[in-house]
Design a binder for these strands. Structure first.
Lengths: 172, 172
DNA sequence: ACCTCTTTGTTCAAGTTTCAAGGACAGGCG
DNA sequence: CGCCTGTCCTTGAAACTTGAACAAAGAGGT
């Protein structure tokens, strides 16, 4: 719990955000929560499921044979296996996903997108894409889009549990 | 989905995201969910509350007399009044916030940051700021930080029902 | 005063997420 | 084989979120 700052900041003083950094951080928080809420409501209304569940169906739709091992699906969606377990149970109840045993590993389960699941995607994808466009891409210049992609790529890599050579000094 | 259109902008065909846009969008989704999870866990561990609750305390700490009307606090945090009601109930149970009646409007309630609440903030803010730095600012160039701020500002404004000291003539 | 519409904040029920715990299998090693 | 140890996934309870419905009080108009 000690800070090891020695250079520009006093040893035990935290490095507060500058005024400019605060503006950026708040804008980030506002934009991300507003957008997430917006898309959640859009999908709940039009597809009957929250945004993250929709993302699961998309992940399955793009996978070979429309199926993925639970762990793979969880990693792709950046959620815990526990959360995925509950989510798939719900999607199964809705008839959009079905579970299948893995023949080669008896612990394993496949999540498989059903025809009904694919149909839901087909029906709701245009509206969702449109919502994303309206909220994000339509408002940004090509340069901003490019910049956003780079920035988010960097941030995501930095937080990936077991990737990238992030051996930064672990000061807190 | 197959049915691909050949023209650039057919009237009734959805405008799918380009490959580049998809990359940006996925990077955005991954980065934001990873960062949100990361900060949620950091604060749950160090402060005993989720990120959004922490934001409520910060909002109160910065308000005059460390107090805000429920609706104002909800707007500032970009959450519904219902959610805020539950959150404040929980924060009250933890002793970090207290409710007070509004004298001028008998329906109204103030959420007031207690001394214990301020103390929690004082104790945990450095660690949180540090976490934000490590995950975000330390990884971006000054130009990227600036760009991120602009982009998020635009997105937030686009989704805000209506804000910014806007006294615009609203045609009804 | 009266009536109506809006605002404020809460509550209920249903749904979702988290964390800790656990069952079942796989892989390696003596 | 028997015994670890790690991986895969599920479960249950508690915490959190959501949307609709609600009571109470303000705000205006007539």
């Amino acid at each position: 719990m000690e800070t090891m700052n020695t250079a520009s900041a006093p040893a035990d003083e935290p490095q507060w955000l500058t005024a400019e950094e605060q503006r950026v951080w708040r804008a980030y928080l506002h934009a991300t929560t507003l957008l997430e809420d917006h898309l959640d409501r859009q999908l709940q209304r039009d597809a009957g499921m929250p945004h993250i569940y929709y993302g699961l169906l998309v992940g399955l739709a793009e996978a070979p044979h429309r199926r993925l091992r639970m762990t793979e699906l969880a990693m792709q969606a950046k959620i815990t296996r526990s959360r995925l377990s509950h989510a798939v149970a719900r999607l199964e109840k809705s008839g959009w996903v079905r579970r299948e045993d893995c023949p080669s590993d008896k612990r394993g389960q496949f999540a498989v997108l059903t025809d009904a699941g694919l149909e839901v995607l087909r029906r709701t994808a245009p509206g969702h894409v449109s919502a994303v466009r309206q909220a994000l891409f339509d408002r940004l210049t090509p340069e901003q889009q490019k910049s956003l992609g780079e920035i988010m790529q960097i941030v995501a890599e930095g937080l990936q549990p077991n990737e990238a050579g992030a051996d930064l000094p672990w000061l807190r």
